[in-house]
Design a protein around this nucleic acid. Structure first.
Lengths: 225, 225, 225, 225
DNA sequence: TATGAATGAGCCTTCATTCAT
DNA sequence: AATGAATGAAGGCTCATTCAT
């Protein structure tokens, strides 16, 4: 579909990209990095479809030709960004705290939600873009879901035993993740004005109550509604 | 000045469209209807951006020229569909039942959620497409949000007095609507396999518990009121 | 080129169009007349290319179908109008007065120029439009020139004997007609602000002097510069 | 905001275009030049409205996309050509010689008219096209007039003091310019067959006589000053 | 490695003309 | 005689991608 870029020509700047030598990167790596950076910026402000390769190379202060030296096409650049975001999200999922009626667990959940908000604010532009319907034959849509699915899976682990009767734990986990993601989405896209603390507290409270029937104790250390 | 190229060329099929003669529609009305129908189909399967006027007219078995006889452009057709969807959603919002800890209220909520699912299944393709970032300068994005905002508003009316301390009613309403919409979205787009009853019951349960701390009685998985 | 309108189907309203029964015209004649009228208006305000059949039928308060009942295409309607304008111009050419150094001849020339201005103001819109480069393969461009050519021919008749030595009478006639037409054009299209009297007097003076070397006596009955 | 779709994508071939390196032009400059050349050709033969971007790129042996790399649209290409033509015309206007009854002045006028003919033969196609009614909201129509207005202005300077009584100098200047332009137009578009010398001599004679009442001495039909 | 000019498939839109009623 | 819905051939323009240098 995308020309004959069968990957047979080696891409520049793909040598040791370990954090250690991050400061002294080859020219190729710097170029690639600036393209990625520009990509985030442009995808964030325009969305995937409206993003122009033109805009990206202009922001990265490089040329069209160079762009295709590093990425087979627009989709691949987006894919790289999405993979990064997915990695971060997966790592976050792993850190989901245990859930029980205790105040400590509630506080930890709040804490975790704060991290989620931070991550969503950073990589959210990409996550948001990839929630856009139909990027590259829905492959990315799935990727977005899969990523959230990991959080769902972790959440399910935590609540399976504590979920009240009458609630399907799997569905509840899904619903809660949906809630968390979407509310963040509304806030990030400015469709709704809300300060982070109120959002975090409410998400924690709803989650906690829906599982344990009682409110999270209100003295979570932050501003509160 | 003479004709004024303001596109004022009168549109066909705009005669008496009263419910009475809805069956016997003029040719123009039929054409317009088939274009709308095709629009739903195409927007649903491809998303707004990937939808081609070509696809729509092909499905409607009409010509390119005819399309522009009825709609100024792709956006306008989408707008018409979106407006319809918004109307239905608004009407549904108005029917949101009162919320209190009683079993009857819980049952009514379940019922309402069933309606939501039905509506979402019908117009959801459009709602989904219009949640896509950046259609026509984000005007539609807002419209989508505004529509959901109406449900939020109605929900807020119902829970303002019953919301437990420690929960900001406005934010909670928002969060619950976000949850309801997104879970439906996941199911509608087949990103998650779930039967409607489980979804409805869980959404009802989470909503109910997050507000009242107790589960909805579990015997609601039938068509009983 | 223009579809298969080979004229085989008889056009409505083409019966006795003599001035005598002009008042009691059949419906067809009235329709045709209103289309012609609308044509003048639209061609005048928009020019030939920008004129839309849409505009014409809207102004004539009739339909597209009807338009093609009376005219094979847009060009034919224009042709009809152009032919009328050409007839009038030809008649005017015939009335060009004799030219000699006398004061009387000068006055008659001024008078004739006044008529030219009047005619140009009425049919000028069409004349102007048809001076537009390339209407229907330059056929009309020629028609416009041919019409002016008749004035040139008449002028040549008048000046052949009186033209001073050193001036080619044919070329001079052509030049003078060019001058008369273009100055009127500038004024009619508001590219130049000029009152009719000044224009007429100057055109008469330049014509007279270029032929006879002396100014036209200044007491031509009208406003004068 | 990021890339701003204001068409600011830098145009190719806009490096040092000094006369010095005019011979060795960059590829971009050559492409742009061939598009301009093709533009003249196509506008000349078809007129502005009938000119197709397709025709232009075909003649320039380049692609559709390339066209839009150099010009925002058809109008802009035309504008570039028109601006060039306007510049040349303005320069010519500045060179209009002084006008007085002497034979030398008459000879200089003839000489100037020869230059006008030469210029009109080169850029006339564009001038002609832009006299077409209604290019881009009449902006160009005015430009054409404005350009001729400069000649009118210069002519007015020269004749203001020598114009005979009974002739409004401004109107006369306008009329003479109109005559000169239109006669050239007729000849250039082959609507009239005329050799250049006859045209030039007659225009000079008419101009001279209308101002000074005597013919230009007839022996000017050579290249003598 | 990098450049940026060139490409062309694809899309939206217009409008003169036709045709069923 | 009239209508107005339908048609489809153009035409202008965009933008991801390629290629010569």
């Amino acid at each position: 579909m995308v020309g004959s870029n069968d990957g047979s020509r080696t891409r520049p700047g793909s040598s040791g990209r370990t954090p250690a030598n991050a400061g002294r990167r080859s020219r190729g790596e710097r170029t690639r990095a600036s393209l990625l950076e520009a990509g985030v910026e442009v995808f964030a402000s325009r969305g995937y479809h409206a993003a122009r390769v033109d805009d990206i190379v202009a922001l990265a202060k490089t040329s069209h030709g160079t762009f295709y030296l590093y990425f087979a096409n627009k989709e691949e650049l987006f894919g790289a960004l999405a993979a990064d975001a997915a990695d971060e999200m997966t790592a976050l999922a792993k850190r989901l705290p245990p859930l029980d009626p205790t105040e400590k667990a509630a506080a930890q959940l709040t804490e975790w939600l704060r991290d989620f908000v931070a991550l969503y604010r950073g990589s959210g532009a990409i996550i948001r873009a990839w929630t856009e319907a139909e990027i590259g034959g829905s492959e990315f849509g799935r990727l977005g879901t899969d990523t959230l699915a990991e959080i769902t899976r972790e959440l399910l682990h935590r609540i399976r035993d504590v979920a009240p009767t009458g609630i399907d734990a799997r569905v509840a986990a899904l619903a809660l993740v949906a809630m968390i993601e979407r509310l963040n989405y509304y806030v990030l896209t400015d469709q709704v004005k809300l300060d982070d603390a109120a959002m975090v507290d409410t998400l924690a409270a709803v989650t906690h109550r829906s599982l344990f029937g009682t409110a999270v104790p209100a003295h979570s250390d932050g501003a509160q509604a």
